[in-house]
Design a protein around this nucleic acid. Structure first.
Lengths: 343, 343
DNA sequence: TATATTTGCTTAAACGTTTAAACAAAGGTA
DNA sequence: TACCTTTGTTTAAACGTTTAAGCAAATATA
């Protein structure tokens, strides 16, 4: 009942009176081992409930078969779906993933990187914390010669692989849609400008306004942490303006939810008085009343592409990490919160 | 620029002209090594950017310092917060965690267990998938002699540690509160009865009705998967009754959100016509209009206690796994959705 | 002074695997 | 017959640590 010793290849070898090396080769289907031996080895392995010691093979081969994944927080559908897809692709190739949450904290992110390096992961796939501006720890990953793949929050000057959607074009899509709905004063509750993706969304917004000959009103462009709470606060700020907007484009769904609550509490009709568009296509956007239009970020594709990008490096050990952007087209899902024609 | 060989203790040893063993001991602050040598070793280690090889020490010591965590899905605040707290406690003790999501699928859960066993984790902390009724894979963990700690969805007959809240008493708290609000027909949209925690909530509900001399109407007791979508469906089912309820207690916040949407769409006043209570205290419950009353499951405490329970086993290697339930008192957070006095 | 203890290190084996090199036996080729 | 190839295996070293055992030198004890 107590800790019986684990079965090793030596145990199998001694049962069959062959060498441990032969067992190892038989289990790896080496062409120089006879079918007879292979079958016998597999049978004994099964009988003794043999489980290969991953640590020993990892030590010998210099590969841990572990990939680290760092996300700001797993509690959104976007990140949990990305992770799920990374896991799916990598498990098939014999890799396991270690997930860590940075909680949007720079310090926690640095700790996570140290931990993952210590654990000898074969690669790191990461989306950066909101706070992060100093890239020294990500450079440390590169210095260690470990493949680094960034996604979503990660576009930068590190010259590594990046997988994400076209944020600039997404903003354009949204503004165009709102203009088509007859909106003239379109506000943007954006993320922090220092984060590249949010900056791209802001640039896309500004350039699109320009394209449609709408003036840029600085009061209508606000930076936010994009939490529900901050979405509420920034919406209240917009409602306090003398000249209110007739549409609000929020760079995150949670903040859009907060904004919507404030609008509803103030009995403002959505989309007639103020139209609302979010970003991320979290499942709840479809379930709210009114449902919120949003940008589908293709979390499944992002996860798969990121995992595949890692595998490319893992297979060519002589890799040199260079800038390699994989940009997916995003898709605007139009729902009730911005669809006047449907009302 | 390319993969320079990693520094090992041998490199440090040869620089100082001492043995590798001395270096190892110096780094572990062995009392039999002189301060002079310790200081020199640490200095050289730093200069050469030495990173201990976790795989080698794990192989030698038979411990991987990895703990597997299996959750149904990370995308709720409850699970991501439990994970965060587990990580915090375990990192301090030198452990890293590997998180896997079962996606509520029995098969995926089994795969996760196999993967974690293969990775030689030192322990597994898990919350079971909705689908799981067959415990054969969890028994496999026990058979492997690896500590198993269950939390939230995991109460069962496996005779292992369990950390969770008092679901039975929570139901009682809710029913009592609703009775105090003057409700007489209290419905319960519960989870699947086969899952112990949901069964406990159902029993608590039934017994509490009895205690307050309210009749049990089978039409008002419904099993659900507790997703937003199913919460909507089950609420619609309740509204279709000739004799509608005047309160609904939903065993999960996401389903409660779905239920609330249906109520709002039907212009039913909350809580005056129908009062609503959820379960889990997801942050969004406080942000909705009306805010939803809910049960605080103390995710932080659950995470910490689960990690501590693992550490107890890890420190006494001669452990025998027995039933050890840690049940936390839950707390009812009363908000607008069930507070008539406030309206 | 002789003996015991402490200090500070070294040696060597071990953890469980993988793999290059060696080699015997069997079969093929000229 | 003499040599080459293929087949199927063994031997031994290696991956980077940890740790029990050993030992010489310094210090303490009587």
């Amino acid at each position: 009942m107590t800790n019986k010793k684990k079965t090793t290849i030596k145990d199998i070898a001694s049962v069959l009176n062959i060498s441990a090396a032969a067992v190892s080769k038989a289990l790896h289907n080496d062409s120089r081992i006879s079918d007879k031996t292979k079958i016998a080895v597999r049978q004994v392995a099964k009988n003794l409930n043999y489980q290969p010691n991953h640590l020993a093979s990892a030590l010998r081969s210099g590969k841990s078969n572990l990939v680290g994944v760092i996300v700001p927080k797993t509690n959104s559908n976007f990140f949990s779906s990305v992770i799920e897809n990374i896991e799916q692709v990598l498990n098939k190739e014999g890799y396991n993933i270690i997930i860590t949450q940075s909680n949007e904290s720079f310090k926690k992110e640095c700790d996570s990187i140290d931990t993952l390096l210590f654990t000898q992961v074969d690669g790191i796939i990461a989306s950066m914390a909101n706070e992060t501006t100093d890239l020294v720890y990500f450079k440390k990953i590169k210095k260690n010669g470990i493949p680094l793949i960034l996604f979503d929050r990660g576009e930068n000057n590190l010259n590594v692989d990046y997988v994400g959607i076209d944020d600039y074009a997404s903003s354009s899509l949204i503004v165009e849609h709102l203009v088509n709905q007859g909106c003239k004063r379109i506000a943007h509750i954006g993320g922090y400008k220092r984060t590249r993706i949010f900056n791209n969304r802001i640039r896309g917004y500004v350039d699109a306004l320009n394209k449609f000959n709408l003036p840029l009103d600085k009061e209508l462009l606000i930076e936010s942490s994009l939490t529900i709470e901050d979405g509420r606060a920034k919406m209240q700020q917009l409602l306090a303006l003398k000249n209110k907007p007739d549409a609000v484009y929020v760079a995150g769904d949670y903040a859009a939810l907060g904004a919507q609550q404030v609008l509803l509490e103030n009995n403002i009709k959505i989309p007639q008085e103020i139209a609302l568009v979010g970003f991320g296509n979290e499942p709840f956007t479809a379930m709210l009343t009114p449902s919120i239009s949003s940008i589908n970020q293709h979390s499944d594709e992002i996860g798969k592409k990121a995992a595949e990008a890692f595998l490319v490096h893992a297979k060519n050990s002589s890799f040199t990490q260079t800038l390699n952007k994989i940009i997916l087209n995003a898709e605007l899902i139009i729902r009730d919160s911005s669809n006047k024609k449907n009302q």
